[in-house]
């Protein structure tokens, strides 16, 4: 017993001060892309051509980047430095169309309406379903429970049964084999319920967007309330998105 107590003192308190204090991420972390379209050369399509998931389209001579398809691989960084990946980890949005990054700023997720905020604001139980995910999104979602991020202090908890859950957090490109189970899980949640799509696979199929064995993401299968891009999304990205959804940020 004494050993356990002394070790506890040695390990100390690990919980980060987020959201009071902004986290310090690695310098090489690829967060929100910043597109400086003014320096774009006419006719150059190199970013669109280099993007493996065809996430970049050129509209009116300027690249528009679909964050939902983006794998944050930085293949699109061209010699003119038009697209740069910043250190900003805040990426979550409410609507799919908000993920198309062009000239405007990314409209970060606003909170739920008053009625739902009253129900879920202080206690949100989530059921995580991996619909074909590669385990990276799942691991970085599971990690929210460790003392560093400590999801519980925000009133959010991951539960074992969909019957206990308020929301469905889905990852993975929705493989053909998992589609029925995903829909069954959604049906098993009691009303009212939320759906959160976390990761590039969940939003638009990720690296498997062209595979006939997947649905290329959640698509129209479920009504999604929060989109969290990334491959995988950094735990702070997901946490930031959840807190914004509940109006705590």
């Amino acid at each position: 017993m004494l050993k356990i107590l002394s070790e506890r003192f040695r390990q100390g308190n690990r919980t980060s001060a987020f959201p009071r204090v902004e986290p310090v991420l690695s310098k090489r972390f690829r967060g929100l892309p910043q597109i400086d379209a003014s320096r774009c050369q006419n006719g150059c399509q190199s970013c669109a051509d280099d993007c493996p998931t065809r996430a970049i389209e050129l509209k009116e001579g300027a690249p528009v980047l679909d964050l939902g398809r983006c794998l944050f691989c930085s293949n699109c960084v061209c010699p003119h430095d038009i697209i740069k990946f910043s250190n900003d980890y805040r990426l979550a949005v409410r609507k799919r169309k908000n993920l198309f990054l062009g000239r405007e700023e990314l409209p970060l997720a606003e909170s739920l309406d008053d009625k739902l905020k009253k129900l879920f604001g202080r206690s949100l139980k989530l059921r995580v379903v991996s619909a074909g995910g590669c385990n990276a999104c799942e691991a970085d979602c599971n990690v929210l429970g460790v003392p560093t991020y400590d999801l519980g202090r925000f009133g959010i908890q991951i539960v074992a049964s969909p019957r206990h859950a308020d929301g469905l957090l889905m990852t993975g490109p929705v493989t053909r084999n998992m589609q029925a189970a995903l829909l069954d899980t959604y049906a098993a949640l009691p009303e009212p319920k939320l759906v959160i799509a976390s990761g590039a696979c969940a939003i638009a199929g990720g690296p498997f967007c062209d595979s006939p064995e997947t649905n290329s993401g959640v698509g129209e299968l479920l009504p999604v309330d929060l989109y969290v891009p990334g491959c995988p999304p950094h735990p702070y990205t997901l946490l930031d998105g959840l807190l914004r959804l509940l109006g705590k940020r």
Partner: peptide
């Protein structure tokens, strides 16, 4: 349940997405 058809996708590669896959 996680089958995404990876081996089939790699046929004819290497594609742009192959390393990511």
């Amino acid at each position: 349940f996680q089958h995404r058809g990876l081996e089939k996708l790699l046929c004819g590669g290497p594609h742009k997405l192959s390393l990511k896959q």
